[in-house]
Simulated assay, not measured.
Amino acid sequence: MAVLRAIAEEAGELGATRALTRLGLADEGAAGDVAELRELLKAWRTAKSSAWRASVAWVVRMVWALLLVGLAVKLGFGEWVR
């Protein structure tokens, strides 16, 4: 049983090493690269979320402005301004 476990562990390490080498993550700077990629992905998600919130806020403002203009026209404030 110990021999099978050792063979499986060795095969797993060899496979992981090959996969990391193919991805270009087998050197000493790989941990820093992965951390930088995670930071970049987090920044992208934050920017995307912020852009959606800003877009929704602008749409809501436009709806309110159109509602107020419509209400002003309906109540006759257009004539009052002239």
Rank of each mutant, 00 (worst) to 15 (best):
R22S: 09
V59D: 04
L41T: 14
W64I: 13
W64R: 12
V56E: 05
A6Q: 15
T17Y: 10
R53K: 08
A43L: 14
T17A: 14
S55A: 15
L41S: 15
A8M: 02
K42F: 05
A57C: 05
G24P: 09
V63F: 12
G70I: 00
G15F: 09
S55H: 11
R45Y: 02
A26L: 05
G78P: 00
A11G: 14
V63D: 01
V69C: 11
E9K: 15
V56W: 08
V56Q: 02
K74W: 05
V34Y: 08
E28F: 04
G29D: 12
L67E: 03
A43F: 07
D27Y: 02
A65K: 01
F77E: 11
G76T: 11
G32C: 07
R38S: 12
A31G: 05
G29C: 12
E10V: 13
E13Q: 11
W58E: 04
S55F: 01
L41R: 12
L20V: 00
M62E: 04
V60T: 08
A54P: 00
V69R: 01
A6H: 10
V63I: 12
W44R: 11
E10K: 15
W64L: 14
V60E: 11
A30C: 05
W58C: 01
T21E: 08
L20M: 01
V56H: 07
G29V: 08
A65P: 00
A8H: 06
L20W: 08
L23R: 14
E39V: 10
S50D: 10
A30V: 09
A54N: 09
A19M: 10
G24R: 00
I7A: 15
G29H: 08
S50I: 01
F77R: 12
L41V: 04
A72R: 10
E36C: 10
W52S: 07
